[in-house]
Design a protein around this nucleic acid. Structure first.
Lengths: 233, 233
DNA sequence: CGAACTGTTGAGAGGCTTCAAGCCTAGTGG
DNA sequence: CCACTAGGCTTGAAGCCTCTCAACAGTTCG
């Protein structure tokens, strides 16, 4: 029996979990639902590329998206991850520039595309929506500024520890204290801004110091307070 | 004859140069002018400190403000500079958090304080204002992301060259090709994210390589194309 | 089973930082 | 008016952190 192409489930196209849409009036929310286009994206798919023109932004209802920039020699710098109930591509859309980042699926995802026109409609008609948008982007800018300071002043060791803790905040742990996001060593390096080999060596040290435990890409936290000390927080 | 305390001139309290206020209706602009409070700040004055509560944002009508974060061991990381027709403190205000940066006058300045209530009023009543605000903050976020990539991937030498070029874009040159902003070596280091001594050594090298000329804090550009090459742009 | 990718470890080089000492400039007070 | 002081600037030396290169093991997948 050939399985049909998988479509997102009803639940996976539901936008009511997004804080951003909380304050919409009924007709606005209906319009949003009418105009959204939700699709399933397999791991590895590029949602949009640096330099491409965007026609709207995306709401993530399932999976994990990696947002990165391509720097020197094609080395990628990961800017952030987006998961359920978060939005992507809105920054470039708002400033009407070509995308300045690339978005790639790293865990099978469902995204709902919202056309630019709809975004504008909401901005024009509902100040609470704009206000919320301003707050979301403000938060992201704050994080970016924090990260600039870290990356400029901290050692690679401190940054790696901090990144692990940040990932813990964003992706929770299972009941075994294991991080629920699977990243390659190279990806970790591309967040921290270092070489893959450095990440490998430091992870080994953390393991040796009983801060974490490693099983392939699974990272289990053993001593969070000590890790925070290493991170110099 | 004792000189009276200097007040801002009429011209220095004029907000019509701000793109942000371009699309305001007459009564909105009048309200803005009624509620603004403009003052003169001498070099060295702290406008607001990291952690303080803000009651409004500021419009810069004269001078230069340095925005920075305090990192490890009190070492400052300069996030950006604000000059005429730019606004500061709006990010923390929008997200209603304590300030996450400090703002310090580095060239005698005139700032107009706009109360939070007025900001909210404009957001609620004029979608074009919100839209413009979204675009300003989008631009800042883009720059922050770009800078994260640079600082994570480029060498100190490349970053210093790039910072010099960025300063050139933002503060123009006089007819002698001399940068019209005066920074200490330490401040340059705090932008680039390196040690003061490294900046000094690299500036000497740039001078030796005939890329720039130095006279105290004055930096004169001799060969911009070559400097761009060094910056790896 | 081979190809391609990921992970690991070692060695060597070099970019940057840190520490230390001294110079220079500007502002201060006698 | 000038010595004095503080802060900025400069240079040198030593050493470490991190990167790069290289070789190889392990894994995944067609």
């Amino acid at each position: 029996m050939r399985s049909a192409i998988k479509r997102p489930t009803e639940d996976e196209t539901n936008l009511s979990g997004f804080q951003l849409f909380m304050k919409l009036k009924e007709d606005e929310f209906n319009r949003l639902n009418y105009e959204k286009i939700c699709s399933l994206y397999k791991k590895g798919t590029i949602i949009y590329r640096e330099g491409s023109r965007l026609t709207g932004f995306f709401c993530v209802t399932r999976g994990i998206i990696k947002i990165y920039k391509t720097g020197i020699d094609g080395k990628e710098q990961i800017i952030r991850f987006a998961k359920k109930n978060e939005i992507i591509a809105y920054r470039s859309l708002l400033s009407q520039e070509s995308a300045c980042t690339t978005a790639k699926v790293i865990e099978d995802a469902v995204l709902c595309h919202i056309p630019y026109q709809t975004l504008l409609y909401l901005i024009e008609n509902n100040w609470k929506f704009s206000h919320h948008m301003l707050q979301i982007i403000s938060a992201e800018l704050r994080e970016a500024n924090d990260y600039i300071t870290d990356i400029a002043q901290k050692t690679v060791r401190e940054r790696l520890a901090e990144v692990l803790l940040l990932l813990k905040e964003n992706f929770d742990l299972d009941n075994q204290n294991t991080l629920q996001i699977s990243l390659t060593r190279e990806e970790l390096a591309n967040i921290v801004g270092t070489a893959t080999e450095s990440v490998i060596r430091l992870l080994s040290e953390f393991k040796h110091d009983k801060l974490i435990e490693l099983q392939g890409r699974k990272i289990k936290f053993l001593d969070i307070p000590k890790l925070q000390k290493v991170a110099n927080i």
